[in-house]
Design a protein around this nucleic acid. Structure first.
Length: 469
RNA sequence: GGCGCGGUAGCCAAGUGGUAAGGCACGGGUCUGCAAAACCUGUAUUCACCGGUUCGAAUCCGGUCCGCGCCUCCA
């Protein structure tokens, strides 16, 4: 079986995804800031990382997946204060929401999901190391800053070397509380307590305060994965400054290389424009559901484009995804019927679906893999309809098909099809009776009624089912 | 301005030198009292534009036009 390869942002080349320790592929992904519902753009990144993990594991390699929870930063503090809640109470609520959304999208839970606020001591420890080694300095107010000029490899990831980092320009830092930095490029490792932070301050050798944003990922990834680990991922926007800063912090502190491979996924656009609060297009999973779509359809849409290209999300694309998903369901049902109760467990070969794995192993080419999935499905369908497939053979095919679906993380578990309201069911039953009595005029009349209520009657050989239109 | 990603059928989207995958939608067919679903089948002489290299280019080179992202706390 092919070893998966992935485009590495740092070397700008494809790298094999083999575990450095020969056993477990250790990787870290930047997780959500829990101050509100995650939007579908966040989920695109998590979904892509999820498929990556599934591909590595399908290749027979164990993984250790760490994804942090950012629960102490400007946004969580500001918002919890505004709502008059404790930071913990506030973030716990949104974390729970996040977990529910992840489950609905069939995201594999990370092996470790460390919370930033629960790892302040490790962060302080790393800051101390940086100060000791001359990579950081304490400002008058008790904040600690990273001395960017002390780390010569700074800017390698983002291709920044030689570029001036100044306070000028459209994206320049707000100077407000960072006026005592030595250089505009320096960034905060520890932020001294300010009145607007309320009760949210922690003791440190430099006085009460809280960690800077980049610190948590450096400290926690090293803590759970070791000084050097296999891969680090996130959205493209994190390349600079977040990941650049993480590298600077971690490598300066440990004296060892940080992540070997850097994995960045492109952004999601909505109806042709960037997602933003002001445009009102920051959709959440709840919005998707409210419009009657299955979360699996969102998963499908999010992987229907290559992760290195921005994807334009539209409601039409969700609709198309839902239709495509229905075909997967149909084949599974057909195979289940043909398997007639037989089941195969622990298959190791892919059968007709091997090309699916191969496409994913080639820099996570999800659109190509989807194409190959359908191509293979046609083959299976032809067999299923063209000749008698034995139960044993069908069971094997079904198992292989399921394996392929697992690579994408598609769960076909008969979705929670809400039962039709009683009135609709009664009308449908009446129609069925009329049909049995060959009173087709009456049957058609009732079908129309049911349709008007937003349901479709699908007749089968000896019965019918009700589906939402 | 710097760095990066793109422009392939009505829509989405693979394909980076050998003669255009796949999905959705649409047309035809099988099945069906009807309908839906499912399956079968058809649909780009052509890959933003102009030159060039080559036996051969969507794919390589040069130029032009257009879209998008990042450039200090945003996945």
């Amino acid at each position: 079986m092919k070893t998966p390869v992935l485009f590495d942002t740092l070397t700008r080349s494809d790298q094999p995804l083999t575990p450095d320790d020969g056993e477990t592929f250790r990787f870290y992904c930047c997780g959500p800031t829990v101050y509100g519902p995650a939007h579908i753009g966040n989920f695109r990144t998590f979904l892509i990382q999820d498929v990556l993990r599934r591909v590595i594991e399908a290749g027979g390699v164990k993984t250790k997946h760490v994804r942090n929870i950012t629960d102490v930063d400007d946004k969580t503090i500001r918002q919890s204060e505004a709502e008059g809640k404790s930071l913990n109470e506030f973030t716990a609520y949104w974390l729970e929401r996040f977990h529910a959304d992840c489950a609905a999208l069939n995201l594999l839970p990370p092996h470790v999901e460390p919370s930033a606020v629960e790892h302040i001591p490790s962060q302080i420890h790393m800051i101390e190391q940086l100060i000791d080694k001359g990579h950081a300095y304490v400002a008058d107010d008790g904040s600690v800053y990273y001395r960017v000029s002390s780390f010569e490899r700074y800017g390698r990831l983002s291709n920044l070397q030689g570029r001036e980092i100044t306070t000028a320009g459209p994206g320049a830092a707000q100077s407000d509380d960072e006026y005592d930095r030595e250089s505009a490029a320096d960034f905060a490792l520890w932020k001294a307590h300010k009145p607007e932070d309320g009760p949210n301050a922690w003791p440190s050798p430099w006085g009460d305060g809280r960690p800077g944003w980049h610190m948590e990922c450096s400290a926690m990834s090293v803590e759970y994965l070791g000084d050097t680990f296999d891969l680090h991922g996130g959205g493209v926007d994190l390349i600079f400054p977040h990941h650049e800063n993480e590298i600077a912090q971690s490598e300066a502190a440990t004296g060892k290389p940080f992540a070997r491979i850097w994995f960045h996924s492109a952004h999601l656009m909505v109806e042709g424009s960037k997602m933003s609060k002001s445009l009102g297009n920051l959709y959440t999973l709840e919005d998707v559901r409210a419009k009657g779509f299955d979360p699996m359809a969102l998963r499908y849409v999010m992987i229907s484009g290559h992760y290195r290209q921005s994807l334009n999300f539209t409601w039409d694309s969700l609709k198309a995804a839902q239709s495509a998903l229905r075909r997967l369901q149909q084949l599974d049902a057909d195979l289940a019927r043909a398997a007639d109760g037989q089941a195969v467990s622990g298959t190791t070969d892919w059968g007709p679906f091997e090309p699916v794995y191969d496409a994913l192993a080639d820099n996570l080419n999800t659109p190509d893999a989807l194409g190959r999935l359908f191509t293979a499905m046609h083959e299976v369908e032809r067999q299923l309809h063209g000749r008698t497939v034995g139960a044993e053979e069908a069971a094997l095919l079904r198992s292989q098909f399921t394996q392929a679906l697992n690579l994408f993380g598609f769960s076909l578990a008969t979705d929670d099809q809400k039962a039709a309201p009683e009135e609709i069911q009664r009308l449908a039953q009446e129609r069925w009776d009329a049909k049995q009595a060959r009173d087709f005029a009456r049957a058609d009349e009732l079908r129309t009624k049911v349709t008007e209520h937003g349901w479709t009657i699908r007749d089968a050989k000896d019965g019918y089912e009700l589906v939402r239109s």
